[in-house]
Design a protein around this nucleic acid. Structure first.
Lengths: 196, 196
DNA sequence: GCCCGAATATAACGACTGTCATAGCCCATC
DNA sequence: GATGGGCTATGACAGTCGTTATATTCGGGC
């Protein structure tokens, strides 16, 4: 089979994404990871023979893809609706974990790559960010935003939401995300009005 | 003396801040830290008897204070000047480290606190964010921004810059920070125009 | 000169890390 | 019912972790 035994494998990847979003990449051990996913340690090396780097990269791709899927769907109802879904998604993760979990893509981005190399997980993080930005920029353009400004606006949205998530965790308060949400909504509404 | 032997101690704290900004908190070992600061391992426990947590907290306070000092000074010339200095500061750190270093305050914010406890380093990170926001909000108000909107604007600035730094590291490109800089400048200019 | 406390050096502690090798299980196919 | 391969279980490896204890060196006050 091409996909030998999905359930266990996917559980490991999803568990890795969750764990990385809490502790960071370097601080997540494969042993704890296996235990958290109720999978044996040996299995992680069976499914991911290239080791931790491969597993981390897949976890980032998994999380990034899941977010992109939600974003794409909700953006069909317009940029503001998409933004709200994006914010609600992260809000849920932070609140439900009692400020212990955040964004795994951000967590991977904040770790020094080995000299001269670009670890696969970091490349996956860059791709995830770019996917999100592209989706947002397209939606903005399609709804009348200045096409030249849309990419910058999309980058601002992703950056500020990611930063706000981290700030919420530090302060143990949802206030930063709420503040950012309010500013971004006003900003987007203004950018779309231009063409109304 | 109240301050027994500043040079060695301060070198350790500054080195810790730098190292945390690269690798993250959990992945920074005290041994490497001591080596990096050219201080003996025993000395770190001499100066910081409470161990790693205390050292990390002091490192975050050190970095947060240094940024706040620069911010306060440059904001005297107005919010836009302060924003530019804030951006230039981080830009320099990311570029000079070849995308390997980022913001130590953000790095500390992205790590799961022990169950039920709030580690001192995380509290220090929350304080640093609040200091920066307060400085920016005050400058915005003093230069004619809507007093009710100033805190939200300040939060957006800090969050988006922090997020952009991480995105730059992932993409190995300064583009996100440049995009965010452009959007924020336009946004602030608009917010101040209201009162001109 | 001596001496005391601050600062450094060295070694060790148990626990944990990523990774690998090996042996055993379980279930589908012939 | 035997055979095989995907999966699991177990244990080991060399190395590092945070932390502590002990021994040594150093610099300035009597």
């Amino acid at each position: 089979m091409v996909k030998p035994s999905a359930p266990s494998r996917e559980r490991i990847v999803a568990g890795a994404a969750d764990m990385i979003s809490r502790r960071g990449l370097n601080a997540t051990s494969i042993r704890e990871l296996a235990k958290h996913a109720k999978a044996p340690l040996g299995s992680t090396y069976h499914y991911f023979p290239e080791g931790k780097g491969q597993l981390a990269a897949e976890a980032v791709r998994y999380a990034g893809g899941a977010v992109a899927r939600i974003l794409r769907k909700e953006l069909e109802a317009g940029p503001v609706a998409g933004l709200r879904a994006f914010l609600a998604l992260w809000r849920g993760i932070v609140v439900e974990s009692d400020f212990r979990a955040g964004c795994p893509v951000l967590a991977v981005s904040v770790e020094e790559p080995a000299a001269g190399e670009v670890p696969p997980a970091l490349a996956a993080a860059a791709e995830a960010f770019e996917d999100w930005e592209r989706l947002l920029a397209e939606a903005l353009r399609e709804h009348g935003a200045d096409p030249e400004r849309a990419p910058g606006l999309a980058a601002l949205i992703v950056a500020s939401v990611e930063g706000a998530i981290a700030m919420c965790r530090a302060k143990r308060s949802m206030r930063p995300l709420d503040q950012v949400a309010q500013q971004l909504e006003a900003l987007i509404a203004g950018a779309l009005d231009r063409a109304a």
